[in-house]
């Protein structure tokens, strides 16, 4: 028996909006520690890892570990039927072939339930090694989204370079080229507006902008984003989800042949 009650149901709606274009089908894993998902995109270039910790739910009952295969397009259709202020409860029986999403309006005067069929999905769980990153950049998520969107109008790939001077985003295409440099700044008023760079050594990596733009659909989940980079390793783009967890995107760099 599984029963997870999330008071801030809009978080789940936002999570689905953030990942449904990257991944079509995925297994949601439920255990004592939380509700999680790990899935790769169809080209095996990017991976998304979601964690919603059990203590972030108002009520969290998971009698035994459960893996539920869901089509994210269909799940998103159902969650779109929940109001932004609704409380969402996810219910499933052990060994059952469906999951139920229950939506309650804040004043409790409307209750809906939507049952969705589960599916069998063969997925390999990728063990991502713990690594020390050469550079970690924390910046406003809206700024990162803006840069990715702007540069994708010029080119297909972006070179992200971190040095002691700041983080530089560069692209070039048929019509020309562009560079955006964000320097470290400290905002006294609002930590969310800060750009903070922790660097052990300079790093420069090339990525397909198409994927980074897809990741920025998670911008609504967090005011800040963290980019963790090491030489010749996938970048980790992380959005914290309030007090409850995180969504991390891993993207393989492009390497000179």
């Amino acid at each position: 028996m599984l029963e997870l009650r999330l008071v801030q149901g809009s978080l789940l709606k936002k999570v689905l909006d953030a990942i449904k274009d990257l991944v079509t089908d995925a297994n949601f894993d439920c255990s004592e520690s939380g509700f999680s998902l790990q899935a790769m995109d169809s080209s095996h270039v990017a991976l998304v890892a979601l964690l919603l910790r059990s203590d972030g739910f108002e009520h969290y009952r998971c009698d035994r570990n459960l893996s539920m295969g869901m089509n994210l397009t269909n799940m998103s259709k159902m969650l779109k039927c929940a109001g932004n202020d609704d409380i969402i409860t996810i219910k499933a029986d052990d060994g059952g072939d469906s999951v139920t999403f229950m939506f309650e309006s804040p004043s409790q005067d409307k209750v809906s339930d939507f049952e969705m069929k589960l599916m069998d999905i063969d997925s390999e769980h990728l063990g991502i090694p713990e690594t020390e990153y050469h550079a970690i950049v924390k910046m406003p998520s809206a700024e990162f989204a803006r840069i990715c969107r702007d540069l994708s109008t010029i080119g297909d790939t972006v070179v992200i370079s971190v040095s002691k001077d700041g983080v530089k985003f560069s692209t070039s295409g048929d019509i020309g080229s562009a560079n955006v440099v964000c320097r470290q700044n400290n905002s006294v008023d609002n930590k969310d507006n800060e750009t903070v760079i922790e660097m052990n050594e300079p790093v420069s990596l090339t990525f397909a902008l198409r994927y980074l733009n897809s990741f920025t659909k998670a911008t609504t989940l967090s005011n800040t984003v963290t980019l963790s980079m090491s030489k010749e390793l996938p970048v980790v783009v992380e959005y914290k989800i309030a007090e409850i967890g995180h969504i991390r995107f891993y993207l393989a760099p492009k390497i000179e042949d």
């Binding site: 991976l47 990728l126 690594t131 790939t157 993207l251 393989a252 492009k254 390497i255 000179e256």
Partner: peptide, 14 residues
């Protein structure tokens, strides 16, 4: 032109 590699190949190298 830089080539796009598979994500798992990077982690396999570690």
């Amino acid at each position: 032109t830089p080539v796009q590699n598979d994500l798992m190949e990077f982690y396999a190298m570690l």
